[in-house]
Each structure stands twice: as C-alpha cells, then as structure tokens.
Design a binder for these strands. Sequence first.
DNA 1: GCGTTTCCTTGGATCGATTCAAACATAGGC
DNA 2: GCCTATGTTTGAATCGATCCAAGGAAACGC
Lengths: 359, 359
Amino acid sequence: MAPLISAKTRPVRLADIAKAAGVSHGTASNVFARPEIVREEVRERVKAAAEAMGYGGPDPKGRLLRAGKVNAIGVATAEPLSYFFDDPFARVMMASISQACDATGAGISLVSAVNGEQLAWNIQSALVDGFIVFCVDGGSKLVQLARERKLPFVALDLDSDDDDAVAAIGVDNIAGAGLAARHLTELGHRRFAVLTLPCADAGFGPTTREQVEMALYSATRDRLRGYFAELSRVDIDVSRVPIYETVNDEKSVWAGLEHIFAGAEAPTAVLAMSDRMALHALDWLRQHDIAVPGDVSVVGFDGVPEGAVSKPPLTTIVQPIAEMGRLAVKAILENDGSFSRQSLPVELVVRASSGPSPT
Amino acid sequence: MAPLISAKTRPVRLADIAKAAGVSHGTASNVFARPEIVREEVRERVKAAAEAMGYGGPDPKGRLLRAGKVNAIGVATAEPLSYFFDDPFARVMMASISQACDATGAGISLVSAVNGEQLAWNIQSALVDGFIVFCVDGGSKLVQLARERKLPFVALDLDSDDDDAVAAIGVDNIAGAGLAARHLTELGHRRFAVLTLPCADAGFGPTTREQVEMALYSATRDRLRGYFAELSRVDIDVSRVPIYETVNDEKSVWAGLEHIFAGAEAPTAVLAMSDRMALHALDWLRQHDIAVPGDVSVVGFDGVPEGAVSKPPLTTIVQPIAEMGRLAVKAILENDGSFSRQSLPVELVVRASSGPSPT
DNA sequence: GCGTTTCCTTGGATCGATTCAAACATAGGC
DNA sequence: GCCTATGTTTGAATCGATCCAAGGAAACGC
C-alpha cells in the first residue's frame, strides 16, 4: 500500500490516481468527465484508486483554465459585503439577480471591500465571467475597475452623465423624483424637506443644493434635481427647502429629522431619496407623535417590499427592481455586445404615508 | 500598430504582451505582480504594450492554478439562490458570515440548486477554499457532497444524530424548544398547537408526531421533541396537540391557522418552529381579530431582527446567529482540524406576543 | 487472410499565469 | 585586469486538469 500522505497537504492529483490505477491521465480524466466512454472494468479500477487515495474529484482550478468559463457572475459594490444582506434595496435586487442566475445555472460571487486597494485587488482577481456593479457609492471607481478587467459588465444605476460606452441599467431618477414632488404639491403641500443619500465622504448633516450637485452618485443628484424642478415649477422657493444628508441609516435619519423639525417652519412634506430613509423617518415621526399623513406626508424612493407593510404603508416611487436584475444577468450571460444602456420607467405608488397638506 | 483582435475573442495573454514588448514572460509577469523589481524603462514599455493590446491584467484563472488558494468561501444550500436574500434567518446568518469574511478579506460564493444533479455539479465545481453548508433541507445530501470535495467545511444546524466526523455548528434545539414550551405552560397555557417546518417533500397540511419524527431535518424533529417533552412533563396530552406542517411561507402558515382554529378546541398558545412562521401567524391572527397575547400567545424560534419590531413584538428563542457565522468562517479559514462540533446555547427572549392564558 | 469498422486508450499539447535558479550585465574595490 | 557585489532578466518547470489526433485491439465482413 502506498504510504499515506500527511494530513496537512493534499497533493493527490488526477495524475496520481492514474498512475496508481495503471492508466493514462487521459483515461483517468474521462472516468470523471465522460464515464460512459471508458470500459467498465477500467472505470471501476480508477474509481477504486481514487477512493483509496482520498481523491476529491477533479479540481475545478485545473478544469477552469482549460474550460475558460467560470459559470458565475460577480456582483460588486464598494460597500461591505453585508450590504447585500442588510440593505433592503440590495436584497430585492439580489433576489431577482439570484432568480435569473438560478434559471441559467450560473453561480454568484459577492465582491466587495471597504478599503479601495483591497477592492481593486478583489475585482482583479475575482473568478467570474462578468460583473454586475452596484453603483451606490463610489460608483465610477468601481466601473473603472470592472472595465479594466475587460469582462462583460453592467452597471446598475450608473451616473447618467458618465461615459456612454459602459452598459448600464437604471431608472429615470429625475422623472421619478418629479413624480414624487408633484404628488405632494398636488396634495397642497408647500413646505418641504429633503433627506438625501450620502454625497460626500461618509458624513451626515445639513447640506446645500450645491453640495448635492457634487455628489459622487448621480442618482442623488438627479433625484434632487427632479424634486426641485417640480417644486420650482409650482413656484416654491427651493432655496429655502432644508436638505439633510444622511448615510441611509437610522441614526443619521433621526438626526436629520431632529434638525429639520427644530427649525422655525416645520415642513408638511418630507421627500426621502430611499425607502430605507423614509421608513426610518416614519419611525421617528411616530415616536414623536407627529401624525402621518395628518401632520406630515412622507414619500420614499425605491419600492422595497417593507414599504408595503410599514406603519403607515409608504407612498413611494417604485423601481422595477426585478426587471433590472433580470436584464443585468441576461446582459452578462448573453454578452452579445448589442446591449448598451437602458433606462427603465418608474412608477408612483400611493399608499397611506401621504395625504393632503394640513395647512 | 498591431492589427486589432476581433471583438469576439480575447486571446491576449501575458505571453502576447511580453512578446510585443520584447521581454520574457517572466519579466512581464513581474511587471504586474512585483513592479518594483523591474527596471522602470522596461516596466513602462510592458505597460504600454498591455494598454495598446487591450490586456485586462493577469487572468486570475491562470494565477489560481499556481497559487492554490481561491480566497473565497462557498456557502451552499439546497434551496434556490434567492433563499439567501429572502429568508430572514439566512439573511442574518449571511450578514454575520459576510462580516467575518470582510474582516479577513475573503470573498463569498453562493452555491445552490434546486435540482439535485445540478447541485452536485455546482458543489463539485465551485471555486472555493471551503464550504459552509446550510442544512435547512436535504442537509445530509449536501453534507455528503461537500465532504466528497475533501475541502474544509462546516455544517450549520446539522442533524445531531448524523455522522460525528463532520464539523458542525448548531444550537440545542431540544433545550430551546423546551424553553419555549415551558414559558407558555408557566403562563398557564394548556391548549397548544404546533406549526412545524417542512418534514416531507414540499407539501403542507396537518401532520402527526410520527411524521415529524421522520423529518429530513433534525432541527424539526428536535424542536418537536423539545416541545412535547416539556408539555408531557406537565401532563398535557400531546397526542391531542394539533401539528401543522408548513413550508415556512405565508400561504401555508395561514392555511395552517385556518385549520387549527377551525377545530373544536381553539388553542391558546401557538408554538412556531421559526420566527418567519410566527410572524406570518401574527399577521393572520391580527386579521382575524384574535388578540395576541390576549386570546392567543405565540412563541417563535430563531431570533431574527424582524421579531423585535413586529406587532406585537415576538417572544422567541434566539439563536446566537452572529456567533455561529463567525465561528463557521473561522473554522474554514483556519482549518486546523481541531474543530469538530459545537452546540451553542439558545436563549428565551420574552416580548409581547406571549401572556397569561385567557382561560 | 486481409481490410474495415468500432471501441478504448494513450500521451502530447494546451489553458494562463507564477516561481526560481541560473545567466547576464554593470559597477566598484583592490 | 580580475573578482565580487548588486541589480535585472531569462527560460524552464509547475500548477491540475481537458482535449484530441493517433494508435492498438478486438470484432466483423467477404
């Protein structure tokens, strides 16, 4: 009997069992890849040798090089990995991406890193056939990195004013934000406040229109533009609308509302750039006995499922998240080059968090 | 200028740019891997060649074979991929796994398949350094497959009566279920109903103790045993306790409650084997104007965050999910063989969904 | 008995990189 | 002018498989 290999290393390769079974490595490979073309007697012998030597089957590392295709798509973000499981928007998107992958048998690799250098390395060394890039934050850097890999990739929610050569799937943020603002002005609201997504480097606090215009992420800019375009249209002085920058979490949203409602003129309508913020806002308002929509109306953005069961249910702009996921996966897997840039329509869904202005 | 390669193929390898730049492939490799040891003039020449030929950097497929380590861990389940993003328990677990991976720079590959054959292939060909296996359903099959790869792996919530040689992290389901039942009996409850996780093949409906004893998943069996052991202890005739098998979704839970509350003696206490079921139960009870905990008490199992904010907040058995995730990742990455099988303690958290029996 | 067909098996080439000992070049010391 | 130290570059070997053209053996037809 061959001496057992130390438990630490595992140098048992296909070639080893081929030798042990007295066949060529070509035949040994066939035993695993196309067993039907190998004579039964030989097949059993090789299998027995494999079993005896503790061989775990052909190593995909080796196969991969030959095959070329990994059969997995990478999903990248500049947030920590847990973003995919924590953030409601990301979750819904991932669920739809998953379904599309399941349907085609592709796997999913999650790629991320907070620190930039690590992120670059992770993208460069990800074993995937293509990338879907979440452009929530630091989007353009990510897109650039993904692009350098020269693999098919699709950006979700990319800067509309970014390079046109990159494939991207997004929604019309300006139109969506306009829809939200118009819904509220039509209900008679005149005093607004805006909660924005992060603009600068991970901080929160009151901000200005000019600051938001410099936001890294175009959705942030576009949504503000959409809000203000509509408000201006009905002669609201947008320079007096307070804007509070959050980091999309409970703490910063609550701080924002503290700040906004401490001001001289409390708003009757809050425009939140994400459902996540809007939901935190509903919590804060409830805890402060401010009636929604009696005293204040809140409109979100995204259309995550939690919004349908919140208290009260959230009026929001829903993005066709499932459709976006499906399209993205399709674009990667059928990378025919025909795909470039799609802007999907959004929809206003009126639920119970918005009502007529109290004044 | 070199003729451009057709857009379809991408046969530009490190060797190609080495030739173009007039250096050996060894040097070309160094330009990317250890630029500091290459003379500047040469480095620039190679980089320029790479740029000109549209080289996307060293292909990780090639590097991988040499390096040996993928630097990613696979998370496997026999559910569809979207399970990771839909199921509350899975999400919390994944979030904690993510954090542990982020901390060490490892990536995550999601591996799954509904159909068995596909699953086997996916596991065999996953490019990972080890597996964390979610044993929610069809666990032992998964464990067996993972094992055949001869890679480090850890089972989460594995059958307690399964092979002892596999590393596993789980909780004491019997004790946890006992805690839940005892909490209710101490509140004076005598009429119980149980909502179980799936036992047989994806169906739902009333079931029996004997059926549950044959459940694929040991947590299901153990939880029922724990419930009934405690109920028997205080002389409740468990043979009269209705058991309803669900598939852990809204539809089957609601059907279960319809069935249970249509019976002659409505229960005053519902033991749900997962928080997900318990939360669906709360919805159903609220819609049917059955007061919780006035008329009926509900106790869940898992300790997902949603339980803390439900209406009413859910009394449940919380598993140390974050700790389990951390341990699992640690076990894979530091695969020192010392790890075998850990059973972590659970805890009863009393919130507002349980109260004194009305009778 | 010889040519064909069929069925298995062989061994070399290949996938795309990394690694490392050896070769080479240049400069400096004596 | 020779020897050593230092800094670069080379080219073969390796990682672990798959693929395929060619070869060998047995069976078949005539």
